[in-house]
Design a protein around this nucleic acid. Structure first.
Length: 566
RNA sequence: GCCCCCGUAGCUCAGCGGAUAGAGUGUCGGCCUCCGGAGCCGAAGGCACAGGUUCGAGUCCUGUCGGGGGUACCA
């Protein structure tokens, strides 16, 4: 029995055997056979898989590809998973899965349930996905939502591919932005006591800062008030950051994101801490230099465009220094095999030097992957809304979730490839919510559930159904779509491109809707799931159950709910 | 200036060097005696431009034009 996860590899093996047989028969010269030539054709009418071996071999075998294809097809071994191959110009060998194999997949999906389509490429490896990690200096905005959706879905998919996964949020609770934040907070706080204190010129003008100050005043009165002109008391700084972090945590909670760990930047600087260890390594390797009163990471020796400051001349470490210590922890202390940092594109300039630093600390070359997502342009009332904490006017993730719902927001964020800029039209998302693709997918799941329920009312269940009765094109078409899920999971887990998930989900939902409405389209009530033919009904109910498993799985990977009723 | 990402249908976007470039939405036309019409089926409509590599280019390379980001002892 061939598992749907391994089908492509299996077909590759059959191709290799066919070539070997052809060579043995003297019909092909003994040439090196390229592997991995079995792929999905764009046009599914051609077959389930297509093999491009003949074209690739044409040059070294010095024969026309069509001829090679015919020879290979002739020697193709008989196999229970596929029909005899068909050859098409200019040299494609098209493969169609057998009904028996497809039927088997229905049983596989039911048996595996929530583990259906799990893969093994990450087996035995530990991976971390760090995402959002926005500064706790303001509420999360819409752009952070994109990072949240991408990071969470990626983590889920890597887990499905066999990785042991940790989700992490890096809390920037140290550094200059933190100081600016607390200076702003303290100014707002003082204003509540009648002082005419302006907020700092690079401060945060948003309304939320005033609200935060008021919240603190309500709880603690004037406990943090210092003589006029004094700087922000440390306790206020701490409390402000904590409250903001709590706010962020609540937003992510509402968005359905659960982290395994919230990692404090400040903790890196504890005595005998990671900062010391990491910089000890760099110092020992001669990659630190003192110059102009500051400490530099001599990254230009390692191929970077320039050196980078890690400790300023006033003695304060830079953000880069924190990140070096943090990644020392990720790779050297905690030993992750793979770390994916999901960052907004505005961090682009930071990627190369961090990778260089990570390698200098001893991590493997490709162990650190930085996934950049382009920033979100928000449209409301036909106008572009600027997204910046500094401008004060932001659309928060909370507002977005409240307006369009967590499922729809996630779906839209995932739909676009991270590298592409995306436009989020709030008015449109709200107004057309009933026509959103997200509802299309969830609706398919609800219909599947209600169909099983309706059958159950008549005493009909999937138990005992014989999938061998599933032979019609509308039935096998649905199975074909289901069995793409393992491939999609592997694709996402190797390319880190989560947009394939929602696209696949739409495709699977469409296959189900088409299956479901086939009897209308063809005006043939014998194509219904529930008919007078009990044996056939039970077989189709097994298919319905299996499709529901697959659809629920992909919704789960995207962090969306799979409703039984809508 | 230099570096990175992106230019695909009216709009928002998919597309791992392979066959006739897809989806959603919008427009137009069919389908409600029908297991959920939040559905199904069909039509019109497109790879920014110019070279190159390849048996084969939306995909790879070079250049031009356009959008965004980076290029700090900010994060």
């Amino acid at each position: 029995m061939v598992d749907s996860r391994d089908i492509r590899q299996h077909l590759d093996g059959l191709v290799a055997r066919a070539v070997a047989a052809a060579v043995a028969a003297g019909e092909l010269p003994d040439v090196a056979v390229p592997v991995g030539t079995v792929e999905r054709p764009k046009d599914t009418a051609k077959g389930d898989f297509a093999c491009t071996l003949a074209m690739r071999l044409a040059r070294s075998a010095m024969r026309p590809p069509l001829e090679i294809a015919k020879v290979v097809a002739r020697h193709f071994p008989a196999d229970a998973t596929v029909e005899p191959p068909e050859v098409a110009p200019p040299g494609f060998i098209n493969l169609r899965l057998s009904a028996a194999f497809l039927q088997e997949q229905v049983e596989t999906a039911i048996r595996l349930g929530g583990a259906y389509a799990d893969g093994a490429i990450g087996r035995g490896k530990r991976a971390q996905v760090e995402f959002v990690s926005a500064n706790p200096t303001g509420p999360l905005h819409v752009g952070n939502g994109r990072g949240a959706a991408i990071g969470d879905a990626l983590a889920s998919t890597l887990a499905a591919a066999g990785y042991e996964i940790e989700r992490e949020y890096y809390v920037n609770d140290a550094g200059t932005q933190t100081d600016t934040f607390s200076d702003t907070l303290y100014a707002r706080y003082q204003q509540l006591f009648g002082r005419d204190t302006p907020i700092p010129k690079d401060g945060y003008p948003g309304q939320y800062m005033s609200e935060l100050a008021a919240e603190i005043k309500d709880a603690a009165g004037d406990a943090f008030l210092r003589p006029e002109g004094a700087s922000c008391p440390l306790e206020l700084n701490t409390i402000g950051i904590e409250l903001m972090a709590k706010n962020i945590r609540a937003s992510l909670d509402a968005f359905g994101v659960r982290y395994d760990r919230w990692y404090s930047e400040k903790s890196l600087y504890s005595p005998e801490g990671l900062y010391e260890s990491a910089f000890g390594v760099l110092r020992a390797n001669g990659q630190l230099a003192e110059r102009e009163g500051a400490l530099w990471f001599t990254s230009s020796d390692l191929g970077e465009e320039k050196d980078n400051v890690v400790v300023r001349s006033d003695g304060r470490p830079t953000y880069f220094a924190s990140d070096i210590a943090y990644h020392y922890d990720k790779f050297i202390k905690r030993g992750f095999d793979l770390v994916i940092n999901v960052w907004g594109a505005d961090h682009h300039g930071h990627v190369s030097r961090l990778k260089t630093a990570t390698r200098a600390l001893g991590a493997a070359d490709d162990a650190l992957q930085v996934l950049l997502y382009q920033l979100v342009t928000l449209k409301r009332g036909g106008e572009v809304v600027r997204l910046s904490k500094r401008s004060g006017e932001i659309i928060s993730l909370d507002e977005l979730v409240e307006e369009v719902g967590k499922d729809a927001a996630r779906f839209f964020f995932l739909l676009r490839s991270p590298g592409a800029q995306m436009e989020f039209d709030i008015d449109l998302a709200v107004k057309q919510s009933s026509e959103n693709p997200v509802y299309y997918v969830q609706y398919a799941h609800a219909r599947l559930a209600s169909m099983l329920a309706r059958a159950a009312e008549q005493g009909l269940t999937p138990e005992g159904g014989d999938v061998a009765l599933l032979t019609q094109s509308h039935e096998l078409g649905l199975v074909r779509e289901m069995l793409r899920l393992p491939e999609v999971i592997e694709l996402v887990a190797t390319t880190y491109e989560p947009q394939h998930l929602p696209h696949y989900a739409m495709s699977l939902a469409n296959a189900f809707h088409a299956f479901n409405d086939a009897f209308k389209q063809q005006d043939d009530s014998s194509l219904k799931v529930i008919t007078d033919d009990v044996a056939l009904t039970k077989a189709r109910l097994r298919l319905v159950l299996a499709a529901k498993v697959a659809l629920a799985r992909v919704l789960d990977l995207m962090g969306m709910s799979a409703p039984d009723r809508m």
